[in-house]
Write a protein that binds this DNA or RNA. Structure first.
Lengths: 137, 137
DNA sequence: CTCTGTGCAAAGCGTTTGCAAACGA
DNA sequence: TCGTTTGCAAACGCTTTGCACAGAG
């Protein structure tokens, strides 16, 4: 997972590579899916002087350019991830952990009877993760 | 679609049947998926004296009791619907119309390799509706 | 050098809260 | 009657904005 070149990634999306942004992306890559609050907390541990406004401005700029994707989950604040191939999300209803799930959604398309053009499918699976299942026993 | 008995529905969920709530549910049943803003607008056309606080209090109470479900869609404010059987949503990227889609999601479960317990699956299909497709030609 | 990004403080806006009066059961 | 709901206004908290300065390219 390590090894994204943030300088290049930012340049590719027409954004200047500031230290704040590099740390921003690094935290996001390390942690997967973070809320604004979590992201801010993590970034401030590294550069305590970053302002909240900068966090917001960067999230908005990166989402707008397409570098980040907003992940909307039930009973949870919006989270953000570095944009990657279309994939589903799993959220554990016990520990709130979020995981990427690469599952084939072609089969869904077959049983839609409406005459629509499908561009993308967002899937969120709610359930209990392996660790939490074990704890329940 | 018409014919829900709102008095009974409210009673079933331990909520008193006030005129505001009946109109609230009526609008929601008529329109399908409404944002807070849209709901408030529609209700105020009927009872101009309702306060915004009441709208919020009712949304929160009904979601909490399970009478309403929150629908989270990409690039869109949260919408609300009267809770019904699990179903997918379609959102048209041109006209923003939202429709219910009853599709079988069993097939998704087969190709998940992780050891998780699945409780529910949320599916949002983004695309172009039939009417908008025709207009494009 | 130029333009973008940052930090700060103030403003903005959607949502919640407290309270007294009104209302449903 | 009693507990819940309503409306109002104030409070709240998250997000955005404006501006001067700093920094990237």
């Amino acid at each position: 997972m390590k090894g994204l070149n943030y300088q290049e990634l930012l340049k590719k999306y027409d954004l200047k590579a500031t230290p704040q942004r590099v740390i921003f992306l690094n935290e996001l890559e390390k942690n997967g899916h973070l809320s604004i609050e979590e992201l801010e907390e993590k970034i401030k541990k590294i550069i305590p002087s970053v302002s909240t406004a900068t966090i917001y401005k960067n999230i908005n700029a990166m989402v707008e350019k397409g570098l980040l994707s907003e992940v909307k989950l039930p009973n949870s604040k919006n989270r953000y991830e570095i944009t990657k191939d279309s994939h589903a999300h799993f959220i554990c209803e016990k520990c709130s952990k979020v995981e990427d799930l690469y599952i084939d959604d072609e089969c869904l398309k077959n049983n839609i009877d409406k005459n629509i053009v499908i561009n993308d499918i967002d899937i969120v699976i709610k359930g209990i993760c392996e660790e939490c299942s074990k704890k329940e026993l």
